[in-house]
Amino acid sequence: MDELMWSVARTSGMISLLLLTGTLLVGIMARSGRAFGGLSRYTQSLLHRSFSLLCVIFVMLHVLSLLADSYAKMQIIDIFVPFLGDYRPFWQGLGTVSFLLMIAIALTGLLRRHLGQRVFRGIHLTAYLMWPIAVAHGLGTGTDAGTLWYRIVTVISIGLVLAAAIWRLTANYLDHSATRRLAREGVKL
């Protein structure tokens, strides 16, 4: 039973990383306001929501299977309070921190019409903090962190998110940024 739970935990952890990276990439894509490749803005928004909710589901599976695996020595409180664990408390704590942030980001994302835009944006932007914490958690405490394929997946994820984040910071990131710049400068179209 422990063996099974352990492999469920590792697999769901890995899938969570992929989904989280995908969520971030599509979120950055959607924020630019561009139709991207064949993806309409609407499709991007739907994909962003679906990836993130799937990610939450896999993270829950990840946490529950570790609870059930007696070797992980996890208590219910470790899900909600970081750094109390018995097994690699620091790295496990990073997992708890990213889990709590993810729940907050996803919930306020779903409820954004009932919150102010400021509250939504403020909490949503912590995604850029949460992603590296989750990646560090996987590298620090994952059983598979030492394997070649886990490293390859992690390095590719980091590369893609870094590239997207740099693009996010460039002047022409937003669709119509050139014409809007002209408008701010008072040029009539």
Binding site: A30, G33, A35, S40, R41, Y42, D175, H176, T179
Partner: peptide, 18 residues
């Protein structure tokens, strides 16, 4: 951001600034 323009293409169009 243009999402509504896509969904309501029959009634909405984009101005030069999107």
């Amino acid at each position: 951001r243009g999402l509504c323009i896509e969904l309501l293409a029959a009634d909405l169009t984009s101005d030069p600034w999107g």
